[in-house]
């Protein structure tokens, strides 16, 4: 039994942040930032912050899309490959400017999402299988369309502006756009009947059906949304790095799943938090960022491969902490 009277009043206000079990990720994020600021000189420099945000805006996007899918009890393995395909499509159309290339990239993601939704809702395939198939198809398509080469963007158009320009010294445009998408997802989940249906489907599909909720529509929505997020992430990729990259995005789906899980969302669905997922995505980015600084100090030198091991260990620690914290609450029920 935890201190019941205390969390009564807090519950309503904590909920937007994700509430009790999601709290770990915020604490961990805060601690890492404090640690970085204390140990490294340039950690809080405008350059580091803006490049950190610019790079991680892509992961924030796909993690948020993944979060909605997982809330329904599903999974979307296709996001990384779809982002790669979208980056190629956007790069190929970059000469016509952002107004064409951006919607084309998002549309690519929407098409992939529609295929996922069709397989899962229409043909009743398990989400794991359906999105695995889409992942393979999207990866193959991006290699065919790009002829296995990185596709250079047209530097004379305004296309690269999205990925490279900033508002002031710190805020890249990509993070602003990603934040807008996060707000939309959060609003849908917290304030619309569609969002409630998403949670109801994941929490108790049988009950949701009995109440006459439009469960199919909720499922179609989350896969479309996830696809669109992946598409947009692909546009960021091409625009920020100057090329459509058919081989990029491998393992992104797993990074996104990890972010969602670290944010306290259950893989079985029915609960979860968009803001905590964003915090999870930033947390993983930060671990990477801190290791780069540590290497820069010259005391140790860890290769990128070791960094991956450390990220994995970090994931385990956070999840173990959550299980520990969640247990008293769960046994109460």
């Amino acid at each position: 039994m935890t201190a019941q009277p205390l969390d009564l009043n807090l519950r309503r206000y904590m909920r937007p942040l994700g509430g009790g079990t999601h709290l770990t990720v915020w604490v961990a994020l805060a601690l890492l930032i404090l640690f970085g600021a204390w140990r490294y000189d340039n950690f809080l420099s405008a350059y580091n912050i803006s490049s950190f945000l610019q790079y991680n805006s892509m992961f924030v996007l796909i993690s948020v899309g993944m979060c909605l899918v997982i809330m329904t009890g599903g999974i979307d393995l296709s996001v990384g490959a779809v982002a790669a395909l979208s980056s190629v499509v956007a790069a190929l159309l970059s000469a016509r400017g952002l107004v064409v290339a951006l919607p084309a990239g998002v549309l690519t993601g929407l098409v992939a999402g529609a295929i996922n939704a069709g397989l899962i809702v229409g043909l009743r395939l398990p989400p794991f299988m359906a999105t695995l198939a889409t992942m393979l198809a999207a990866r193959g398509t991006s290699l065919v369309v790009s002829d296995r080469q990185a596709v250079s963007v047209d530097w004379t158009s305004d296309f690269t502006g999205l990925g490279m320009n900033k508002i002031g010294p710190i805020l890249p445009w990509t993070i602003v756009v990603a934040a807008a998408v996060v707000l939309v997802a959060w609003y849908i989940l917290e304030r619309t009947s569609l969002g409630r249906t998403v949670l109801a489907v994941g929490g108790n599909a049988e009950a949701a059906h009995l109440m006459g909720l439009k469960t199919s529509r909720a499922l179609v929505f989350v896969y479309l949304f996830s696809g669109a997020c992946a598409g947009l992430a692909g546009v960021f990729l091409a625009s920020g790095y100057g090329a459509g990259q058919p081989l990029e995005g491998q393992g992104w789906e797993l990074a996104a799943i990890a972010s969602v899980v670290v944010g306290g969302t259950l893989l079985t669905g029915g609960m979860g938090s968009v803001p905590a997922t964003v915090a999870g995505a930033l947390l993983f980015g930060l671990v990477f960022n801190l290791l780069n600084f540590e290497n820069g100090l010259g005391v140790i030198s860890l290769s990128a491969y070791w960094q991956s091991v450390i990220r994995g260990a970090f994931l385990l620690i956070v999840i173990l902490l959550q299980v520990r914290l969640a247990r008293p609450a769960a046994s109460k029920a």
Binding site: R196, L199, A200, A207, L213, G270
Partner: peptide
């Protein structure tokens, strides 16, 4: 099995 959505609040369960 057929009634409550366990993780949603009383409010959300009541108005679904």
């Amino acid at each position: 099995v057929e009634g409550i959505i366990p993780d949603l609040s009383v409010r959300e369960n009541l108005t679904l």
